[in-house]
């Protein structure tokens, strides 16, 4: 018969070992644990657990993947500088050309989102000039197109998407947006010849009518003063009133064109954010 002492000893021994084994987990398990948080969109916890893995894992085998996921998590949280920092760390630990490309594209995407498009273009140029990525040219052009969109250069965006496919969905979209834009110089030139015409062009009919009326009134009074030989009156009305309303009309025409274009851009970005199903930065 087994004594109570023996049973107790065995239970304690096994429980101790079981507890010990349970507490000790491999780096792979820790990685999966962190990845699970990432998959569940719990980005704060994901960053913590990936950082924990990086701190304790002496093999450095997760330096690429963990830093990449930290970067992606920070990106989701809007912490773009931290994201770029960790993507750069991931880039330093890449093992394959594919990983290197993938990481650089992530850095480019963050730069597009935070509108530091100048930096995005530099990185895209460096990728394009690298012969290793010669077969990735379409993807480079795709993100170049996006960078142009965020730089508010829809014409160049269209050209970039066109180089992927002449009927690329985003090329067609960029063209349609570009066609909708108002030409600021044209609006101004119209208002130079006919005050208020620039406002009419941008669809601001009331403002155009008011501008036209003021210019007709002060123009009439100025000319009438000169016709009546009241040169001083004519000069004063012309310079203080007519000229003021005339220049105001030009400024207004340009301002309305800019505002309308901004609205068009915002609507386009809103559409891309919510309705476009392809890859987005």
């Amino acid at each position: 018969m087994i004594s109570v002492t023996k049973i107790c000893f065995n239970i304690i021994l096994l429980a101790g070992i079981a507890c010990n084994l349970r507490a000790q987990i491999s780096s792979e398990e820790q990685f999966n644990y962190a990845k699970n948080f990432f998959d569940k969109e719990k980005y704060f916890d994901a960053v913590t657990e990936f950082k924990r893995l990086l701190f304790f894992d002496e093999t450095d085998q997760y330096n690429f993947a963990a830093n990449k996921f930290i970067g992606l998590s920070y990106k989701q949280g809007g912490k773009f500088s931290d994201a770029v920092y960790h993507f750069t760390l991931a880039e330093k630990n890449t093992g394959t050309a594919h990983e290197l490309f993938e990481t650089r594209i992530e850095i480019i995407k963050v730069n597009i989102i935070r509108r530091s498009t100048g930096r995005a273009f530099i990185l895209l140029d460096s990728l394009q000039s690298d012969e290793t990525f010669i077969n990735k040219i379409d993807e480079i052009n795709y993100w170049r197109g996006w960078a142009f969109i965020f730089a508010d250069d829809w014409e160049s965006a269209s050209t970039s998407f066109q180089s992927i496919a002449p009927d690329h969905e985003l090329k067609v979209f960029a063209d349609s947006i570009n066609n909708n834009f108002y030409n600021e110089t044209f609006a101004k030139v119209l208002s130079i010849f006919i005050p208020g015409a620039g406002q009419f062009y941008t669809g601001e009919y009331v403002s155009g009518l008011i501008s036209l009326s003021w210019n007709v009134l002060w123009g009439y009074l100025t000319i009438k003063a000169f016709v009546d030989d009241r040169v001083f009156d004519g000069f004063m009305i012309g310079s203080l009133l007519w000229w003021r309303f005339y220049t105001g009309n030009l400024q207004n025409a340009e301002k309305f064109a800019l505002e309308k274009n901004l609205e068009i851009t915002n609507d386009a970005l809103y559409y891309l954010k919510n309705s476009y199903t392809g890859p987005k930065p």
Binding site: L21, A23, Q24, I25, S26, L53, F56
Partner: peptide
């Protein structure tokens, strides 16, 4: 087995 687990695994949350 205990020693083996210590060499390959870490108690990340101790």
């Amino acid at each position: 087995s205990c020693i083996y687990s210590q060499s390959k695994s870490i108690n990340f949350h101790s």
